[in-house]
Write a protein that binds this DNA or RNA. Structure first.
Lengths: 131, 131
DNA sequence: CCGTATCCCCTCCGATACTG
DNA sequence: CAGTATCGGAGGGGATACGG
């Protein structure tokens, strides 16, 4: 019945969706995925340049989180000037489809909304009081 | 090609998806929608009781945001003990489908992930030895 | 080139108290 | 019952400096 049957410490972690949502909800996460999509592989500074404004700290952090979630693969080339390439996993490519649907959904409903409706009558809400 | 062509002030606001994502990414938002789904209409304190741990402040705030996004409708009954009923809009019901897909996606890939792969030799002869 | 360590600010969230 | 006002703590994110 209640939405917090277990894990009382973190009330927002009831279903698994919220888990991934919290990761993806963080700043830059979605943008990183979007940029990763433009190429098969992207290097760290290349990505950083594309996301102008992001700091190395945060980019590294997001990349690590996305890697832990299995959305990004990291390839380290032990060369003299270090080279690391990032790319999307198959899992992330599937996620993209859902994001696209979400984008479509957003576009379909893009418009100003009403604020609130005050019911003057004492009647059942089934009869729409939109006048 | 760059991801921040306009709106330099907010780098995370490139596409509309991120906009709704930021609202839904906030704590309790998803849970609120989930609870709203169990009934057609729910009252404020009823909802607050279901989401044990949330404060009136935050619940009110979330509800207002969701209303602004057009996901929730608010009906005010000017009675002696005030009565306000919240319910999902058609738009939110459509969103639910997408969330369900996301949930399915999460379930399909639920498993431990690798950490990182270091390329020791050969493979990928791309000339990227620029210093 | 690819990050980590540190500091600081600023927003978010919870708790409490109070009003219509 | 249904909120708003205010305060204070915690954590995310940016800037800078430094290491491998």
């Amino acid at each position: 019945m209640s939405e917090t049957p277990a894990a009382e410490a973190k009330p927002g972690t009831t279903c698994a969706v919220i888990d991934i949502w919290e990761v993806l909800g963080k700043r830059w996460s979605l943008l990183i995925i979007k940029n990763l999509r433009t190429k098969e592989t992207i290097r760290f500074n290349e990505l950083k340049r594309a996301l102008s404004g992001i700091s190395s700290t945060v980019l590294s952090e997001r990349l690590l989180e996305l890697e832990r979630e299995g959305l990004v693969t990291k390839k380290i080339y032990p060369e003299v000037p270090p080279r690391v390439e990032y790319s999307l996993t198959a899992q992330a490519k599937e996620l993209e489809v859902i994001i696209k649907e979400l984008a479509h959904w957003v576009g379909r409903w893009k418009r100003p909304q009403s604020v609130a409706q005050t019911v003057t009558k004492k009647e059942e809400p089934s009869s729409t009081t939109a006048s």
